[in-house]
Design a protein around this nucleic acid. Structure first.
Lengths: 209, 209
DNA sequence: AGACATAGCGAGTGATCACTCGCTATCTTG
DNA sequence: CAAGATAGCGAGTGATCACTCGCTATGTCT
């Protein structure tokens, strides 16, 4: 019945580990950190609980591997989206960023951020990953064509600020969405990045030397 | 030994309920949603587990009461901070907002937001509170002196955008802080709210009619 | 082929979860 | 002051947690 495909030990190992990590990422996104139990992960991965602990010493080790997978995948996905644009467009780029922050996989990242706040061990493991994430976002921003039109550190601050803003929007999205404001927000960001005032003032009397 | 202060039933009830709600808020902030158990809340409130269930039908009811307490207290604190300013100052106001998002009590709100994403019951209870929170933030923004210098809906979008940005910053703070960027971010926000470009462009050639 | 190593299994284990229940302590009402 | 109501207690209860352990299944090495 069961045709055994004859895989090497390394292949079996690798495949099982990948299944467990994928399962953990999906579970974090779908049921949250607290309910991402070893039983839940094993069930989703099609592995027994004992089998899971053959490859990971603890639940935290699985979680950590999942966190790094999320970080890596988010960049792959975003760069893929950027590459699909026929030409650079600030509004489209901001919408890509929003799509990234709203992606199910990114919800897993938020779960980890929040859990890390009150879990010292997780915090210690996650901090280096978060630093790297932060660095990669900045690098990504500097690689954008718009980088030529403003000082690098001002761009860095703007890019991170925009990402933070979309993070806040994504977090609140589970209990409150305002589609009209979301569109308006993209337009404001576009104006800011274009070096224009953020709003169309009716009586814009510029003061301050 | 124990001098009984002879309180009425209503006073006893009220006092116990307040202690439980306070304990829940503190627990959410200090140990997170998952570890804010009925035992933890009862211990902090100085009440037995059974005593807790005398006043609340379920853990979720306690959590809900805590959520509303957080929302109310955040506005009281913020308005108090605003009142303490000798005169209106955009930078100081943004820093007050940051202080609010970084306050321990606000961490409780983030815990609830994230938990609500994967908990349908909590989501249903929290959504009306979140709507109200959102509305009150907008009203607060419109009451600021700066409201006179730009169209109301543009201001709304900016204010919520800034709050979201500070939310994202606060969330990431447990694993990554960048004090220099945080200062720069306030300055950028001030420039944006003043109707100036967000950055000091070196070769600012304004295009677009 | 036979000896050995690694992969995978699933029934435990003690701790902790939300919540219940029978009880006592305190207040209210006539 | 007596009877009834409300407040508060803490030892259960079944479910679920991360993790262990003795076992079998499969791949590797000579």
């Amino acid at each position: 019945m069961t045709a055994t495909p004859r895989r090497t030990q390394a292949e079996r190992r690798e495949g099982t580990i990948a299944a467990i990590v994928d399962a953990a990422v999906a579970a974090l996104g779908e049921v949250g950190y607290a309910r991402t139990t070893t039983a839940e992960i094993a069930r989703r991965a099609g592995v027994s609980q004992g089998g899971l602990f053959r490859h990971f010493e603890s639940r935290l080790d699985v979680i950590f591997a999942a966190a790094d997978a999320v970080r890596a995948r988010q960049f792959d996905d975003f760069r893929e989206g950027l590459g699909a644009l026929t030409q650079f467009d600030v509004a489209a780029t901001v919408r890509l960023l929003r799509r990234a922050t709203r992606a199910p996989i990114n919800a897993a990242w938020y779960e980890l951020l929040v859990a890390a706040r009150t879990d010292a061990e997780l915090q210690a493991r996650l901090a280096p990953l978060a630093d790297r994430y932060h660095r990669e976002i900045i690098e990504m921003g500097r690689a954008l064509p718009i980088a030529a039109s403003m000082p690098p550190d001002e761009l860095d601050t703007l890019v991170i600020g925009i990402v933070y803003m979309l993070d806040g929007e994504a977090l609140t999205a589970s209990v409150h969405v305002d589609a009209r404001q979301e569109d308006a927000r993209v337009e404001q960001v576009v104006r800011i990045l274009a070096g224009e005032p953020a709003f169309e003032g009716e009586s814009s009397a510029p003061r301050q030397a």
